Simulated scan of single mutants.
Amino acid sequence: MNLEVKNDNFKLCLDALRENKVIAYPTEAVFGLGCNPESETAVMKLLALKHRLPEKGLILIADSFSQLEPYVALRELSVLQKERMFASWPGPVTWILPACPQTPRWLTGRFDSLAVRVTNHPLVKKLCSELGKPLVSTSANLSGREPCRNENEVYNQFGSKFPVLIGQTGGRINPSEIRDALTGNQIRPG
């Protein structure tokens, strides 16, 4: 019985993504807000929910690097830079890579780069796999509020009708570490 509810919940969230809606889902540390990165409409809905300026850019989270490859200019990284990045995945390390020229500005913001992560969270991996593409990933919280760590906190901030993929976070205390792939410099500790 419980498994059926979870499967229905998963399908509801997957359908919402396919309809270019925003959902919340558990990640390694907190719940994230996500949407179809190829839909400007969906991304603008997400940014409006967060009260986030489009020029700040966003993170894409994926099941595998092949889902991220169309968005980033991997050829601009040296062998060592690629090895360092791939050694951290799947896992809670987000890397900032040069973006491909065709990567939409609604993802990169004012930058010529894009933040990307290959997750090891099983629910997010399944969601990206079933969708066939990465998700936009930003912490699930209203401006000035703490990021949500469970579905009840998401409902409290976004309303009881908000589509939430029910599940546990990966148990990490801090959001993902962010590093610059070109320099190796840490932008945000994890």
Rank of each mutant, 00 (worst) to 15 (best):
Trp89Val: 06
Pro90Tyr: 12
Pro90Ala: 12
Pro92Arg: 02
Pro92Trp: 01
Pro92Glu: 07
Trp95Gly: 06
Leu97Asn: 03
Pro98Leu: 02
Pro98His: 04
Cys100Ile: 07
Cys100Trp: 06
Pro101Ser: 11
Pro101His: 10
Gln102Phe: 13
Gln102Leu: 14
Thr103Leu: 08
Thr103Asn: 06
Thr103Asp: 01
Pro104Ile: 10
Arg105Ala: 14
Leu107Ile: 05
Gly109Phe: 10
Gly109Leu: 13
Arg110Val: 12
Ser113Trp: 07
Ser113Asn: 10
Leu114Ser: 07
Ala115Ser: 08
Val116Gly: 01
Val116Asn: 02
Arg117His: 02
Val118Ile: 13
Thr119Phe: 09
His121Phe: 10
Pro122Phe: 12
Pro122Trp: 12
Leu123His: 08
Leu123Ile: 07
Lys125Thr: 12
Leu127Cys: 09
Leu127Asp: 02
Cys128Trp: 09
Cys128Glu: 03
Cys128Ile: 04
Cys128Gly: 02
Ser129Pro: 01
Ser129Ile: 04
Leu131Tyr: 11
Leu131Gly: 03
Gly132Tyr: 03
Lys133Ile: 02
Lys133Asn: 11
Pro134Cys: 11
Pro134Thr: 08
Leu135Lys: 03
Val136Arg: 00
Thr138Tyr: 07
Ser139Trp: 11
Ala140Phe: 00
Asn141Glu: 02
Asn141Ser: 10
Leu142Met: 12
Ser143Asp: 11
Arg145Asn: 13
Pro147Ser: 12
Cys148Phe: 01
Asn150Ile: 00
Asn150Met: 00
Glu151His: 11
Glu153Arg: 03
Glu153Ser: 01
Val154Asp: 00
Gln157Met: 05
Phe158Gln: 00
Lys161Gln: 15
Lys161Asp: 15
Lys161Thr: 15
Phe162Thr: 05
Pro163Met: 01
Leu165Ala: 00
Ile166Gln: 11
Ile166Gly: 04
Ile166Thr: 13
Gly167Val: 00
Gly167Thr: 00
Gln168Val: 05
Gly171Leu: 05
Gly171Glu: 05
Arg172Phe: 14
Ile173Gln: 14
Asn174Ser: 15
Ser176Ile: 07
Ile178Val: 15
Asp180Asn: 15
Ala181His: 04
Leu182Lys: 14
Leu182Phe: 10
Thr183Ser: 15
Gly184Glu: 05
